[in-house]
Design a binder for these strands. Structure first.
Lengths: 169, 169
DNA sequence: CCAGATTATTCGAAATTCGTACCAATATGC
DNA sequence: GCATATTGGTACGAATTTCGAATAATCTGG
């Protein structure tokens, strides 16, 4: 049998770093493609498939790694979205407002900025009611926001995902 | 052969909504577990495995769906970026400007809006030079933009299109 | 009603994952 | 020091899943 054994590879690797590095390398690959086959990862990192499987399931069980799908809601589910520029009230930090709005599932983007606004958020909604409700309950009902410039989206030309390093294509 | 056919189930589903709902259901499951087997999804949604495969690969090819791993330290550590509110020059349509900026890989988001601005774009930059270069070459060098409010990002609180809260088991 | 195009399904083959046993290296106890 | 748990890695057959490609069903204009 001409099956390649991994003994030499493992030795060469264990010299460099104990073992944590392997987890990082696995994660790095899964960040690019969360569905990459364990055998493919094993091939690239020169360890056995079982090891990858053990590591990944271990990481997932300990909530150190999550493999999830991210979708563009505007493209798939929701029809409209709006950008809202917010100025927080005096004595309130943008962080406080952000942490409050963060909980709302319709808010898909919150960025603390310098300039005209304090916070820029993106709101997705399936109809006009959702926007109205959001403004009513999250904006006007709270005293931590001094001003809100609502800019309803008319057309989305580009909406990429960005997550750490640049995407593949 | 005692294989169950899908005809009845599909009929029951197609009554409600044409087909978009299926994509949404697939995404919902993959948001809980990005590695869920297609056959498992097919079982739960009562369609064939091939359909799930076609839909998922289609969504991924169109950048409407991305399946990634997130390790918790990384999850909150997005690259900060800048939002820019643009007003186009007289005689120029937002569409024209959008189609020009669309080509720039650093621009990851372009939305035509109503309100204070005509276009809101999101710019990712790995360093300060990138922002300067963008302003120099894409904004000031062109005569189709009347005004640009640059709002550098200070901290990103949320930048996910995660609809459901984090799944755990 | 029919051709063309698009999408869904089916099915066998290839690939992957899973369960489990085994082995090596490191801890642990006496 | 030595035997022995314990942890983590590998190997391998079986079960499952994915893939490729052909077929069937559905949708769309004409």
């Amino acid at each position: 049998m001409a099956v390649k054994k991994h003994s030499n590879a493992r030795a060469a690797q264990s010299i460099r770093s104990p073992k944590d590095d392997l987890n990082q390398q696995i994660i790095r690959l899964l960040q690019q493609d969360g569905r990459m086959a364990f055998s493919e990862i094993a091939l690239q990192l020169d360890v056995s498939e079982g090891t990858i499987r053990n590591r990944v399931s271990g990481l997932r069980d300990n909530n150190m790694l999550r493999i999830v799908a991210m979708s563009d809601p505007v493209a798939t589910e929701y029809t409209t979205d709006a950008m809202i520029g917010l100025n927080v009230a005096v004595g309130v930090t943008p962080r406080q407002v952000a942490e409050r709005l963060e909980k709302n599932p319709r808010v898909v983007f919150i960025l603390w900025v310098a300039g005209r606004y304090d916070l820029i958020i993106e709101l997705v909604s399936d109809d006009g009611e959702a926007l109205k409700d959001f403004l009513e309950h999250e904006i006007h009902a709270s005293d931590d926001i001094a001003n809100a410039d609502v800019m309803p989206g008319l057309k989305n030309f580009k909406n990429q995902f960005l997550l750490k390093q640049g995407a593949k294509e």
